[in-house]
Design a binder for these strands. Sequence first.
DNA 1: AGCATCGCTATTGTATACAAAGCGCAGCGG
DNA 2: CCGCTGCGCTTTGTATACAATAGCGATGCT
Lengths: 214, 214
Amino acid sequence: MSKASERAYAEIRGLILSGDAVPGAPLTEEALADICGVSRTPVREALRRLESELYVVRSDSQRLFVADWNAQDLAEMFTLRAMLEAHAASRAATRITPQALDCLRACNASLAAAVAAETPDVASFLAENRRFHDIIIAAAASPRLTTMLASLVEQPVVRRTAARYDRAELARSAHEHGELIIAFVAHDAEWAHAVMTGHIRRAFHAFSAADPVK
Amino acid sequence: MSKASERAYAEIRGLILSGDAVPGAPLTEEALADICGVSRTPVREALRRLESELYVVRSDSQRLFVADWNAQDLAEMFTLRAMLEAHAASRAATRITPQALDCLRACNASLAAAVAAETPDVASFLAENRRFHDIIIAAAASPRLTTMLASLVEQPVVRRTAARYDRAELARSAHEHGELIIAFVAHDAEWAHAVMTGHIRRAFHAFSAADPVK
DNA sequence: AGCATCGCTATTGTATACAAAGCGCAGCGG
DNA sequence: CCGCTGCGCTTTGTATACAATAGCGATGCT
């Protein structure tokens, strides 16, 4: 995507994810154009994309609003993510290169280090976690899967999840990553699938427990 | 969507589906604007949508081409579609309303009639088949799933598949739909899941057998 | 006072003009 | 003859102006 469109997309997405744009609030193209410092044209493109990713919803007559995710929406997102990411792990198991495996190991070592610190470094944990999962998705070598997962892995959700993890739970994430790596080394697609499913679903329940109302 | 955009979308999609625009052929916004009788702006919106639905692909630098899928792409599409649509069937099994069930029955009756004709009416088969699957997806009540499946159910593929079905295979489709309906009546999510998986995967293999090279 | 209707305004949709970026061809040099 | 470079033309990206439409409020009628 081009510069202005991309910028508008990132900016608006940021507004929504940060909570600056509250769920249900109306969005007007012109106001967003001002905020992003571009014209309405790229804003419109960004909004179409955000609409297709369900960050914003279109009302009866074309007016846009910030989407409002309820508990069911989140549950469905986690379910779909578990399904698709497990499939990705399964494909990755038989396709991953030694180089990518090394990356995974390095990545998880950093992650483990972030967890092991006296006060766990949640920011690093998140960054390495994201990287770890991205490597697997890339190794799955399925562009469609990549696209779909991109709209399911919401960092704010992940962050809210991780923020409520205690050290033991963070450590368990690192351990599960380690098990995934072993499954990859063994090229065992089913094992990788199972571990990934468990990994995501545990995150889901940690999230639900932390955020019982929403 | 608004009038001109919608028109451009339908027109371009038609060009691709009819085969007038051959796979791999370049598409320029201006030429399409001329064809559709609108300006480039709505054409661009239509193209974005077609791109997200994978009817067209964007090259290294933003040039658009009619999509051309290879065997791997198709295999992955069918696999993802089987996964997601089986999930949809599973959800639908416990959520579907009696009204929707009636729709399914009516729909499948029409489909069976189209198959039973002396020379099977493939166009009607396709229309009813699409409607049948759409009802199930709607009953699954998961907006994200709906969005994702929209970009996986490619009519050109479905059509090429159905075109190579003989009458027995078309009839088997109708039969499988019937079994799905029974699973829905029983509210048996696992059964619905299994039947749908088989239904899609059979279509995949029928397609592969019919189109061994691509 | 309540409701309906009219008109203004806010917002989205479309067209067009202009800017930027790539691709290809031509001309030049090795 | 091949390849490289630079220029022009095609194509896409962005901004802006204008058109259409929906929402909202005010005003007047009952």
